[in-house]
Design a protein around this nucleic acid. Structure first.
Length: 523
RNA sequence: GGGCCUGUAGCUCAAUGGUUAGAGCAGGGGACUCAUAAUCCCUUGGUUGGGGGUUCGAAUCCCUCCAGGCCUACCA
């Protein structure tokens, strides 16, 4: 068993600037990693970039750059975005890293030595313009290859193949016996159906005459390896598999297997659901050393209208700059159910931020601190006088919120987890209305009741702040700072009564300024 | 062609085959003044896409049709 929870993301292809989907996946995984830390467990979060392959080579040529320069130019954009969005990874997997190249070549050599690779000639139709072999599926209605392919020639080419189909039955059995291999469950069904139809082996090489930008096969210098064989291996190469002792990479045994490879639905079949488990099995990994897959959905862009005036609004960096990192992270985590698709909407981003963070949580903090300062000079009294409504909050609402939250996070349901925190804040606002501290303050006989109400509100807000921490680390610390709670957020402290008698609260400062809608422009 | 998913209130979504299908937002009405024009209470709104079937009981299971999306087929 690994002693460290290990999460990975897909590594992004350095051929274009990052978009909202890239940002979603990384923030999602960042939230999982931060939740593990909040729970007191050690965690390792690996993400990175896939820098090899034909498209990078082609794009580099267009811009007159070397593939490496082009890939690094693009990589910088990803690095800057993760910095901006507060994505705190522990390991960076860039596939041009020599340590990665070494691991890929060692694995290829091992597969070669054990006879799992073979060389074979393939004859087919090849598009010179697109630099790829065509299949019958590429033919148009009249059965010919259309003009979009340019010149098409029939040629024969030798390549290296991996004996993928030999492992079909093993993979079927593995899927059947590991119900948590793929989350959500319907994706596992989809995968199983696809594997049943699996036939043919996997071509894992490209001749250098066609593609030079890749990792050379260690046993045949005329070829580079196919991008998936290169990219998938990042999960083990950067976690220390087959690494030299002085490599500086983590200790593989402390990480493997990863708790989850977080990936998009587009790369489940065949890459992560077929190639990857079979590769690991062929290399010699046992069934319980094959990581689970968490498959997330996509943000669809339905309204094309919104980009008209502001340009590319789905650029996550621009969104974060415009609305703030807190608003963007909150929206990306709250408005989609993990595994499903959602429609991206700036209007919903604003609405959810305003309703749930500004009006509900932020205003709750603000009004509570204001009253505490106005009526009690910011000093909390921890008294034994729980009235029914207060004990409801302390003994029922708050523990229930923590339990619901923890269970939801354990099942990767970030939206449901956030909802639990928001509901607790809502319960606090209700308590303020029903207890009316401004009336209690006018009646000296109600002094203890007022102290108790203020204490209960502050405690509940403290717990809300802890629960929000993985998704909104900055806002979480901001709330705790105003509460003058100095200890680092921890789920262990999400229990009632941590603030002591005489605790002095900080001054209120609006933490979530409301987002205003853009000015309405007449058509 | 094969496979998967979705369809529930105006919108975004819940609901192990089991009370009268629920939340939030939006809409309507009211209350309050501690607060970021915030908050709280009440409330309107449903032939669960259509049709058949199984069942004591169906949003849920089966059949069928319709609509939308996805995978199959290298970019989250």
């Amino acid at each position: 068993m690994p002693d460290c929870t290990f999460f990975t993301t897909a590594i992004d292809y350095t051929n274009a600037a990052p978009h909202i989907g890239h940002a979603y996946e990384k923030v999602l995984t960042d939230v999982f990693a931060r939740f593990e830390k909040l729970s007191g467990r050690s965690v390792y979060f690996l993400t990175g970039v896939d820098q090899h392959g034909q498209k990078v080579q082609q794009s580099a040529e267009k811009e007159g750059l070397s593939p490496l320069d082009f890939a690094q130019q693009c990589t910088v954009k990803f690095l800057a975005l993760w910095q901006q969005l507060g994505v705190q990874y522990d390991g960076w997997a860039a596939t041009t890293d020599p340590l990665h190249k070494q691991a890929v070549q060692r694995i290829l050599q091992q597969l070669f030595n054990s006879g799992k690779l073979y060389k074979q000639a393939h004859r087919g139709f090849y598009s010179v313009r697109q630099e790829q072999f065509l299949t019958d599926k590429d033919r148009n209605e009249s059965g010919a290859f259309g003009p979009e392919w340019g010149e098409v020639v029939e040629l024969e080419e030798e390549n290296w193949y991996f004996r993928l189909s030999e492992y079909r039955d093993w993979l079927l059995g593995f899927i059947d016996s590991h119900e948590h291999f793929v989350t959500p469950a319907f994706r596992r069904v989809e995968l199983r159906n696809a594997v049943e139809k699996l036939s043919g082996d996997l071509c894992i090489s490209r001749p250098k005459s066609r593609l030079s930008w890749g990792i050379e096969l260690p046993f045949d210098a005329g070829f580079v390896t196919y991008v998936w064989f290169d990219a998938l291996i990042n999960y083990v190469s950067f976690s220390g598999y087959l690494a030299d002792p002085d490599s500086g990479l983590p200790c593989f045994e402390s990480l493997w297997p990863a708790k989850a490879h977080v990936i998009g639905k587009d790369i489940l079949i065949p890459a992560h659901g077929v190639y990857w488990p079979i590769m690991l099995h062929a290399i010699g990994f046992s069934d319980d050393h094959i990581p689970n897959l968490l498959v997330h959905g996509w943000w669809n862009i339905s309204g094309a209208k919104m980009s008209k005036s502001t340009g590319n609004v789905i650029d996550p960096a621009a969104l974060a700059t415009h609305y703030g990192v807190t608003a963007l992270r909150y929206y990306l985590m709250a408005d989609i159910s993990t595994g499903k698709d959602a429609d991206f909407s700036e209007e919903r981003l604003r609405i959810r931020f305003n309703d749930e963070l500004a009006n509900n949580v932020g205003n709750l903090l603000n009004r509570t601190l204001n009253m505490a300062h106005r009526y009690r000079a910011g000093v909390l009294r921890k008294l034994e006088s729980p009235d029914a409504d207060l004990s409801q909050l302390a003994l029922h609402d708050a523990p229930k919120a923590v339990a619901t939250y923890t269970d939801a996070m354990a099942h990767y349901q970030v939206d449901a987890a956030l909802d639990a925190a928001i509901q607790l804040a809502r319960a606090c606002n209700q308590l303020i209305e029903s207890s009316a501290p401004w009336k209690l303050a006018k009646d000296p006989a109600q002094a203890e009741r007022l102290d108790a109400v203020l204490y209960h509100l502050a405690e509940a807000i403290r717990i809300v702040a802890i629960l929000l921490n993985p998704v909104l680390p900055d806002a979480s610390l901001g709330i705790l700072a105003q509460l003058a709670v100095a200890t680092a957020p921890s789920l262990q402290d999400a229990v009632w009564g941590r603030m002591e008698d005489g605790h002095l609260l900080g001054p209120p400062v609006p933490l979530f300024p409301r987002l205003e809608p853009p000015p309405v422009v007449a058509d």
